[in-house]
Design a protein around this nucleic acid. Structure first.
Lengths: 224, 224
DNA sequence: TAGAACGTTTAGAATTTTTTGAACGATGTG
DNA sequence: CACATCGTTCAAAAAATTCTAAACGTTCTA
């Protein structure tokens, strides 16, 4: 610890050696991806592992990574396999070598859209499906209901419908990202406005954009 | 606890009363938004609070929410103020009433784009700025460097450049969502491909799309 | 066959996040 | 003024997450 502080100070005073400088940049990158991973609901180590592999010209072994990140073997083992399941990292087998080597998926777009498809979309579809059911049930309820209850059911229904639209739009957006396609956010913004405005707010053009999105949605088998 | 199980069972057997049914739907909605909040890096309670307010025709007091969510006053107080800071909830003052009343921002699109602007964009811009610096420093380094080091610096640079492009695209996308605008994901996918492909992968059309995004980006004052 | 090298698993330690509950200050009321 | 109401704060508890280190099973080597 002390030696590190001392070293840093010396570096500033004297001039940093090139390898050290490069090492420092690499560290910063690794930490950045750690934060990103955290931000996206993974954990720091997963991001750091991906970063280490992403910056390595050759595949690395478990122990390489343990050393680099000063973590434990168990921890790295668990997290590297999580990365594998997400398709962010792949295993490399070497001839006559019992060790496992890993390398990062270099196509980061592929990596990201895989996650969008497997995680974000699943989440959004769950919500949408739940909202669909709720709205449907409320619709039923509001028919048999008397006075006060009918009003409540109606109100809930409208509010949930607004959210449902938002999530559907989000889901379509994700789909576009994964499949390729184009999105106009101009119309999107009106999709999820408050109920009152919304009722008269869906103009011809918006209607079109909306329908396009919804049909696309359905064609991928999501519950409507 | 036991009474709850019993009640559920009775509901299935006998038929559920309308108010109970509506109550149940509302609970599900509240829990769903709790999960969503979690997913987006807030916490469960924040989502639940927003949901409770979103489903309430009139503004609610702290104690209303405490009762509804069976949480503590302190906890609700802290989280409701967080929601306020995010612009997701606003305070209502009533004449001759010392209590604070709260209501949810009903325009969910506004709510979401506020978050995108204030949180996701800040995050992405930090990363981009850090990557910019790193790439720049590596560029410098690779000039003075000798053999092996130059190769390493070059490699790091290329890899980081790929990520930098991805984040810039993400940031532009966020900007589009917030400002309104259109995005073509067809070109986006090639922005972040692996270095080799990337070099010859940017065709005329992609180049165009890219430039459009980048100029837009700069015009909003982000560090380039 | 003994032992080394390697990756996985897991109990529990450490850390971080969330929640509680009590104390407190501020404001109003009789 | 004594007392009640209301919201905030904060230390400590509880819960959730992440991490470690040791035990273990496999596979290979001498």
């Amino acid at each position: 610890m002390d030696s590190k502080i001392y070293r840093q100070r010396r570096e500033i005073a004297e001039e940093v050696s090139l390898p050290d400088q490069i090492e420092e940049i690499s560290k910063e990158f690794i930490n950045n991806l750690g934060r990103v991973a955290d931000f996206f609901g993974f954990n720091r180590l997963m991001g750091q592992l991906y970063a280490v592999l992403f910056l390595s010209p050759e595949p690395l072994t478990l122990d390489d990574m343990v050393k680099k990140l000063e973590s434990s073997k168990g921890n790295v083992s668990i997290n590297i396999r999580a990365l594998e399941r997400w398709g962010l990292v792949r295993q490399i087998y070497k001839w006559a070598d019992r060790k496992n080597y890993y390398e990062a998926e270099p196509d980061v777009w592929k990596a990201v859209s895989g996650i969008l498809q497997e995680r974000e979309r699943k989440e959004s579809q769950q919500i949408i499906s739940s909202l669909n059911q709720s709205v449907e049930r409320l619709e039923q309820a509001s028919k048999t209901a008397s006075g006060q209850e009918a009003v409540t059911a109606q109100f809930y229904m409208e509010r949930m419908e607004v959210l449902r639209r938002l999530f559907k739009f989000g889901d379509s957006l994700l789909d576009m990202m994964v499949q390729g396609g184009a999105v106009d956010f101009g119309s999107a913004s009106r999709l999820a406005r408050s109920t009152d405005e919304y009722k008269e707010g869906i103009s011809d053009l918006d209607e079109l954009a909306l329908q396009q999105l919804e049909s696309d949605q359905e064609s991928h088998g999501a519950r409507n």
